[in-house]
């Protein structure tokens, strides 16, 4: 089970890192520095799929493979704002991890990538901004079953029944007319 809040996750990971590092090294601050580089496309439209790319290296520029890097954005919703985690990725042999990201709303978006640190490396952090242009509505209701013409089938069925009633009425009218013209000697119940 994972903690809910992105911030607390970082805090706990950091605490964990600090604890474990404490066993190995005199202090966390002495861990070698890391450099995190976040590449964000400069502009995009809402609904467009983008690739966020983060590269983690040590101070000497050597890639750090096999560690978890988190991607975040600053979001505001229904009066509440905060950092939301967009996703995580594990760095490859070249120290690069990518995240597929779809901006959902027009405007400037603050993006961030963070490496919480590991026993061997200190934490790293990078920021980026993305300006998002307007896009089509992203959420679409999936329509339920629509059978074309079913209403007309119903109308046709009902009209057929009522047309028959009508023709019976016409027959009744004919009977009534015949009753008026029938000669009295023809009378037979």
């Amino acid at each position: 089970m994972r903690p809910l809040v992105a911030g607390s996750r970082i805090a706990s990971l950091l605490a964990l890192a600090t604890l474990s590092v404490a066993g190995l090294a005199p202090s966390a601050g002495e861990r070698p520095e890391t450099l995190l580089d976040l590449r964000v496309p400069a502009a995009a439209n809402a609904g467009e799929e983008l690739e966020l790319r983060a590269r983690l290296t040590d101070a000497g520029g050597a890639p750090i493979p096999g560690v978890l890097v988190g991607f975040y954005s600053l979001a505001e919703f229904a009066g509440v704002s905060g950092e939301v985690m967009l996703g995580e990725g594990v760095t490859g042999a070249d120290g690069v991890t990518t995240l597929r990201y779809v901006p959902r709303r027009e405007g400037e978006i603050m993006l961030a990538a963070r490496f919480p640190g590991s026993p061997a490396h200190g934490p790293g952090r990078a920021m980026g901004t993305l300006s998002v242009g307007p896009g089509p509505p992203l959420y679409r209701e999936t329509p339920w079953i629509r059978v074309p013409g079913i209403v007309w089938a119903l109308v046709a069925l009902l009209s057929a029944v009522w047309a028959t009633y009508l023709s019976v009425m016409v027959l009744l009218l004919l009977i009534a007319r015949d009753g008026r013209v029938a000669a009295p000697e023809e009378v037979r119940r």
Binding site: V168, L171, L174, I175, A176, D178, G179, A182, V187, R189
Partner: peptide, 17 residues
């Protein structure tokens, strides 16, 4: 009774109705 006289035509009409 719609002027029913039981004429053959009336019977035929009623029968088909």
């Amino acid at each position: 009774s719609l002027g029913w006289r039981g004429t053959p035509r009336q019977r035929r009409l009623l029968g088909s109705a």
